[in-house]
Amino acid sequence: MPSFAQLLVAVVQVLVLVAAAPLVSGFMRVLRAKMHTRHGPGPLQDYRDLFKLMKRQDLRPPASGFVFKIMPIVMPAALMVVAMGTPILTRATPIPAIGDLITTIYLFALARFFFALSGIDSGSSFAGVGASRELTLGVLVEPVMLLSLFVAALLAGSTNLGEIGAAVADGRMHSAAATLLAGCAFAFACYVELGKLPYDMAEAEQELQEGPLTEYSGPSLALIKWSMSLKQLLVVAWFIGVFLPFGNAADTSLPALALAFVVFVVKVVAIFFAVGIVENSVARARFRLTPRHSWLGVGVASLAFVFYLAGL
């Protein structure tokens, strides 16, 4: 059972991430506007949108059932559990019992399960196609994630996220090349998981009308939009926690945590800046050709594995 301090850190983590998630998507929106030489709405626009949606009426298609109703609750709950287990401010995971790499991947799968199922449950064809694509992307991405994380775990000696991060931070990974390659593969997989161009398959703004989100409205839509921004932030935090843990607090003392928080913010901003630039410079990849891209990820992860095996 986690200690009180650990639990406190976990709760703080979750609240911070939850509160900051719309800010991140706001930041991305500002970046896009600037790149398009527009003025654009401010970074706090998403908060305003969410508050407005919360007060609207909830419309549901006649065919929808209880999965449609509970998905806006289940998805954020799953993501928040992941948030509790990821090492964001501290080196070690706040709650080791949920901080395992396999647990994290499968908790994301829980969120994806209900997300896709609600798409079918709405009875809308766009939502259904979006659900299908979302799951297909999961199929293409999860093996890459697992292989790259597995290589890192083998180098670190444990599948606990905090342990891997600590090993990277302390320089205990005896194959720098393998770690680097694994990090690249995992970064690629995370980018796909973010659901940004060129891989925003599920939403596919232009023709799929936001995919599984199509039929949601009012408070449900607010919760889901918020969960999606939370998910993006969480995926990046996951990547940072495992492969870029430098600056994280080694204990739970207040100064260390504060420093870790600042460093975290810097890292997140930098990464999202890079993501934003990439996202706004490309068009969406053709769905049919996505496997070619995912083969790239598989290739890099396999290379990492080979380097690990060879002991280089």
Binding site: K55, L59, R60, S64, S122, S124, Q209, P219
Partner: peptide
């Protein structure tokens, strides 16, 4: 946020 919000309606056909 439910204060003042109208109750959910289930007659909205999905967009086609």
């Amino acid at each position: 946020f439910a204060v003042g919000r109208r109750i959910p309606r289930t007659t909205a056909a999905p967009w086609a």
